[in-house]
Simulated scan of single mutants.
Amino acid sequence: MTLSSPEAPTAAEARPERPGVTELRLAAFATHRRVRFPLGPLTLVTGPSGSGKTAALRAYEALARLGAGAELREVFPDPVGCVPERSRPDAERRRGFRIGCTVDGPEGPVRLDVAVQAEPELRVVGERLSAGGRTLLETALRDPGRPSVQAAWHTGGSAVVTRVPLPDDRLGTALLPLRVAGRTPGECQVLAAAEQMVLALRSVYACDPSPDAMRPPVALGYGRLLRDCGNLADVLWRTRSECGRRYAHLVAAVRAGCAGTVTDVVAELLGDGTVRGLLDRGDGLRTPLGLLGDGELRYLALALVLLTGPGVLEVDPAGEVPAAYQSLTVLADGFDRGLDARQTGELVRLAARMCERGHIRLVGTVSDGAHAHGAAGVTVVDLTP
């Protein structure tokens, strides 16, 4: 595996106001063992088929869902598929996997590492939240017969730590804001680190545009872009009237990436109450999106994702935190799937421009790293053996 990234910030630079994941760790997950992925505002993971690109994004999304409070069984419907290949069970027939990440933000780098047992039953068996060389939260499975782990978090008062049981089917870090009182400086540090971690993880939108889903007309009214972008026309109808400036950027991006003349991208309301998207070719000629090729549709959908935000994408941002302190992370498996070289180049440049502004981050997988290596503002993770 080889890595390349933009110049690192100097020590004199202030901590980022918006928390963001800066490293993904797969200690033992699917095809990966003892692997670390550096993540920047725009990260592209490249490598041949079978190198583990999709597994890396799967682990990131799993951490995001756990950070949002989801139960283990929702996050890992097939936990055995996450266990590293050729992993042997112990004397009690237990097997599992380990993943983690680092989030940088106002509190500095905060680390999270999670150990999950997949067999004989799914449960969290260990978790560690740490910052500045200090362990702030640590959990461990003490009694396999109980559905809980023993948790200890830093207090810093008369008692150095507080020990309580926590459920073994959820991420303990996500539960801390409801469990820690914040009466001592130590507890305040635990809360601040946990909140930074949860804020960075929960603001994630995973998408994989499906051209077949985008072709037919769709019902009008939902207005938030689904994971498969199947309701693209409905979102076009909404966003056109909400932000003319960003919509103009979308039209310019589509013009650069789609064949033929493009003067506008419009949504047309049909007699049955549904809406369909069209490319305005000028001179009264309009092409329904249903007639576009797979690559053009995926390009259009990804450009729209990059040019919108949490209010338009189907994501649950932290409502208690001002938007100015949040950064949405887009996970795009197959970022260049179906795209030609020109479209891929345009999309990478658009992503770099949008990620540079700080309100959005992107982690995508690409089959061809030619447009990633050497591109300004792109962190490249190359899984080529």
Results as ranks from 00 to 15, higher is better:
residue 375 A to H: 06
residue 222 Y to H: 12
residue 308 T to R: 06
residue 287 T to R: 13
residue 258 C to F: 01
residue 338 G to K: 00
residue 382 D to W: 02
residue 310 P to Q: 04
residue 184 T to M: 15
residue 30 A to Q: 15
residue 182 G to P: 11
residue 316 D to R: 06
residue 342 R to V: 12
residue 350 L to P: 05
residue 205 Y to F: 02
residue 333 D to I: 04
residue 215 R to D: 00
residue 301 A to M: 04
residue 165 P to K: 07
residue 317 P to E: 01
residue 192 A to S: 09
residue 163 R to L: 12
residue 20 G to F: 15
residue 379 T to K: 03
residue 69 G to S: 10
residue 130 S to C: 13
residue 370 A to F: 03
residue 314 E to N: 09
residue 154 H to S: 13
residue 256 A to Y: 01
residue 337 R to E: 07
residue 320 E to C: 06
residue 164 V to S: 11
residue 242 E to S: 11
residue 291 L to H: 13
residue 169 D to C: 10
residue 26 L to F: 12
residue 49 S to N: 15
residue 214 M to C: 02
residue 40 G to L: 06
residue 157 G to M: 03
residue 54 T to Y: 08
residue 237 W to D: 13
residue 210 S to K: 04
residue 231 N to V: 05
residue 29 F to E: 13
residue 216 P to K: 00
residue 266 V to N: 01
residue 327 S to M: 04
residue 131 A to H: 14
residue 195 E to M: 10
residue 82 C to K: 13
residue 209 P to M: 00
residue 276 R to S: 07
residue 194 A to P: 07
residue 165 P to S: 11
residue 283 D to M: 11
residue 120 P to I: 10
residue 286 R to V: 12
residue 163 R to D: 12
residue 84 P to L: 09
residue 257 G to F: 00
residue 318 A to T: 05
residue 68 A to N: 08
residue 196 Q to M: 07
residue 69 G to W: 10
residue 370 A to E: 08
residue 122 L to Y: 12
residue 329 T to M: 00
residue 73 R to S: 15
residue 223 G to W: 09
residue 372 A to P: 08
residue 340 D to P: 02
residue 78 D to S: 09
residue 159 A to L: 10
residue 17 E to P: 15
residue 31 T to S: 15
residue 348 V to P: 08
residue 234 D to I: 04
residue 322 P to R: 02
residue 57 L to F: 07
residue 74 E to C: 07
residue 284 G to H: 09
residue 357 R to H: 10
residue 268 E to V: 04
residue 158 S to N: 12
residue 253 A to P: 02
residue 179 R to Q: 14
residue 118 A to C: 06
residue 184 T to L: 14
residue 375 A to M: 06
residue 376 A to W: 06
residue 285 L to M: 15
residue 137 L to C: 11
residue 111 R to V: 07
residue 273 G to M: 00
residue 171 L to H: 11
residue 336 D to F: 03
residue 54 T to W: 09
residue 174 A to H: 03
residue 361 R to L: 02
residue 351 A to L: 14
residue 245 R to T: 14
residue 353 R to L: 10
residue 316 D to P: 02
residue 334 G to D: 01
residue 203 S to R: 04
residue 99 I to M: 09
residue 202 R to M: 03
residue 352 A to L: 08
residue 145 G to F: 11
residue 45 V to D: 14
residue 255 R to N: 05
residue 108 G to H: 07
residue 15 R to Y: 14
residue 30 A to W: 14
residue 74 E to Q: 10
residue 256 A to R: 05
residue 66 L to T: 05
residue 243 C to A: 15
